[in-house]
Design a protein around this nucleic acid. Sequence first.
DNA 1: TACTTATATGTAAGTACTTACGGAAAGTAA
DNA 2: TTACTTTCCGTAAGTACTTACATATAAGTA
Lengths: 132, 132
Amino acid sequence: MTAEGGGVPLSERLARGDLMAKACPSREVLKHITSRWGVLVLLALRGGTHRFSELRRAIGGVSERMLAQTLQWLEGDGLVDRVAYEVVPPHVEYSLTPLGREAAEKVRGLADWIEVSLPRIVERWEEREGDS
Amino acid sequence: MTAEGGGVPLSERLARGDLMAKACPSREVLKHITSRWGVLVLLALRGGTHRFSELRRAIGGVSERMLAQTLQWLEGDGLVDRVAYEVVPPHVEYSLTPLGREAAEKVRGLADWIEVSLPRIVERWEEREGDS
DNA sequence: TACTTATATGTAAGTACTTACGGAAAGTAA
DNA sequence: TTACTTTCCGTAAGTACTTACATATAAGTA
């Protein structure tokens, strides 16, 4: 297919990222998605639209600061959609964009595996304690 | 407290983790796997056994210190197997355990998506620049 | 006698991530 | 009037992650 580049170099529009490369921009995306709270935000939003305070409650341990920060990162990458109603007190709703839904599916795959495999991993921890 | 397996309640050995819960041990596993270099180490080891220096070369930007650290985390979780030959200079080989191979597959799913989707995400970045 | 090799470890220093706390806005309830 | 609500932002402080640099090994090489 022919790409119509509105001024942007063709190479830039088609290039696939390479996470192994030190300077690849994909590293930035990886950082946002796999950040401490990024993963959990994506998981929480898989259930649909949520208000800020709902997310805060759903994700055990996040501070308001970090939740806001993380949401901004994800919004900046086009994974999360933010809708603010101009009222007081503020009312803001967050949801996944189509792009974000794709990412969230992949994250769910990993998260699910971790949750299910936890018992097996804990076993290793216990074995190691006995080693020393 | 309950360090040895013998006295640990059955429910605790079988329980599935819950990443949304603040104190769940699965959070620790998530941290190791999604750490800055953890993801890349798992990806690199998908190709098979690698020596330390090979990994260092394969993963652009890692310092020796962090690579060693990350490998220890993953080894501790039973995802990576470490075999050291008692020679000088040292010769150490790393590979994925069956458990690690499972994790690596999930990570690959996410990593692959990021690499492929990078162009679409970069578009958002460029759109935002014009916004302000 | 150095110098080089491969894989770490210890330490000091720097940077980035996180948290805690206070503040702001414009109504409503007490 | 005072308190309370929700969603942030700013600042200071703390903690964790990273890097840079030095050290150790035992044999082969210049």
